[in-house]
Nucleic acid binder design. Structure first.
Lengths: 339, 339
DNA sequence: TTGTAAGCGTTATCAC
DNA sequence: GTGATAACGCTTACAA
């Protein structure tokens, strides 16, 4: 029989009970050494493998953790998952991946499905359009640990792992100021989304802390796309008092900006500096590499996993609510580094 | 009670048996319409949800599929997984991700763990150093469908999904020839690995088919790294008869080549053309975008999933061994497109 | 130190 | 049409 050995088979072989076999296998204290050895030996002989399913049904623990992201093939998310898997695998947990495709409905459906699969926990990044919270309540009501990473919602009892977007914006802007830039514009992705708002606020604070004026006309809101970056630069250059630097919340926008600067024959970094956000792989591969704020996705994944583990290992009834905020790391490259 | 309703609770409520409830829930033909409606109604009232675990234990089907890759955060693999998940989710399958970190030992361990978790199938890309095959035999012996994608081994009974690397090399080279290049060099990643060998062979064939000489001195073997690309170009330019184009098996090498060409002030594409392989995101973002052969990772994932589904849905005893070869797509960009 | 038996939640096979 | 019962493979009081 192909790998279908059960503890009963071992029991029969040794003329003992399945219970004894189970205990021997689990190194139960009051099982004789002899029996243990015997059981272990025949278990090996018969190619016995514990059926996790039966165990899960009995114990209610599946050692399965659901990870929910908008799209798994986005650089940021695949790195977070990398971190989660790296951390959880050694602890015996397996990771189930699902994508929401940035749709609220699919997010809800996915959560239901994961709960149905009896996962021991859910780590997720909320999809953009999501507004309802009933599906989160379902998770909490079932006492399944829930951890939000990056994109969160403030819900009692739910832990979150994020980076300090405010500090990211602050650092990037401060760096530009240190480089001697005086008129720093900010191109943001839609400001109604928390993380982008925070980056913007960090930018603003850095300006004020350094005695620079905040100018409304230097703020542009647009999509995270290369062509949006191009247009943003064009618009900024139509101003009478042109900026001499841009901090943007998106590397793709930064790229568009860079391309347009090249076209206009503006010298970077001598006459204009650029800093992006996310540290996408391409930023360092450019002919003129782009400075960017790194979000430490792998670290974020590891941390989310750790928070989950703490939660699951604590006395069942204690609700831990942890808010981890990771420091962003500014990668300074040629696009903003004057000699 | 939080989501712990079982069919017994429903049965008790209605003064019928669990068996009847089960049948009603499964729309069994000889259950009265009345009972069905009643059961469905109270099921909803009590917030009943089927326990997949119990079902899995009973049926032996978990609706879990294991996906094994070297690293999940590599662009190529995360895209394949995207394809797999997209295809499998609607069919009710959930995807468990594990990474081998390019280690044979971890690969073996991972396989064991997945089999232990009773997955219904395994889709994987073999890690580079793997030489043994016992762990694959384990999978086959358990009658668990196994599909290799991209990196495969020829094992009887195992389906594979790959792209036609030979054709990829052929197309890329042919394109360069059509652009008027006469002296095309090839920078490869180590030729002892199947896919790179195939790309090389395609290159060679294209040369010969078009009446161009194959020259040993135009072949360089190196690592898939930017700096390796730089060095390769330097070496090629030391030749008396310099090449006028390069087809390389790696986009990172292509990038290094491009950077070095820029440094040497060689005009691309006018005086020199470059084509890479993999269609990494950065290739299209460059100031001078790099032509590259796309491996259709999402499509590869979808196809692997489809092959798995066919296998699982066929009459149990029929062993299907399918070899799917996807066509590569050449993306022609500025680095190889003369006016 | 080991055996007995119940239980985890379903479904399938007999009955009636 | 519906009920009883066994079975999936394991763990764990409770006995012995």
């Amino acid at each position: 029989m192909s790998g279908k050995t059960t503890i009963y088979d071992i029991a029969k072989q040794l003329n003992i009970t399945a219970a004894t076999v189970s205990r021997a296998l689990n190194d139960h204290p009051r099982i004789s050494q002899d029996t243990k050895e015997l059981v272990l030996k025949t278990a090996k002989e018969l190619n016995y493998e514990q059926n996790k399913l039966a165990l899960a049904l009995k114990s209610g623990k599946t050692y399965l953790v659901g990870v929910v992201v908008p799209y798994i093939n986005r650089n940021f998310f695949s790195n977070v998952i990398r971190g989660i898997e790296d951390e959880l695998y050694p602890k015996g947990y397996r990771v189930i991946i699902s994508q929401t495709h940035e749709e609220e409905e699919k997010e809800i459906e996915t959560i239901k499905s994961l709960l149905n699969a009896q996962v021991d926990g859910i780590l997720m990044s909320i999809s953009k359009p999501t507004t309802v919270t009933e599906h989160f309540d379902m998770i909490i009501k079932k006492n399944v640990p829930l951890v939000f990473f990056d994109r969160k919602k403030d819900i009692p009892g739910v832990s979150t792992v994020t980076i300090d977007d405010f500090e990211g914006g602050y650092k990037a802007t401060e760096h530009l100021i240190q480089q001697g830039c005086k008129k720093i514009a900010h191109v943001s992705v839609y400001l109604n989304i928390g993380i982008y708002k925070d980056r913007f606020e960090g930018y603003k604070k850095a300006l004020l802390d350094n005695g620079l004026a905040f100018r409304e006309e230097y703020i542009i809101q647009t999509e995270s796309q290369v062509k949006a970056g191009k247009k943003a630069l064009d618009d900024l250059f139509k101003l009478n008092d042109k900026p001499d630097a841009i901090f943007t919340s998106s590397d793709h926008i930064a790229l568009g900006v860079m391309q347009q600067l090249k076209k206009k024959e503006v010298k970077v970094p001598d006459d204009f500096c650029v800093v992006g956000f996310s540290n996408e792989p391409f930023t360092k591969f450019m002919e003129l590499p782009i400075s960017s704020v790194d979000q430490s996705p792998i670290e974020m994944g590891r941390m989310s996993a750790k928070v989950f583990l703490e939660q699951i290992n604590s006395k069942k009834k204690v609700k831990i609510e942890k808010k981890v905020v990771l420091p962003p790391k500014l990668h300074i490259r040629k696009s903003s580094l004057k000699e």
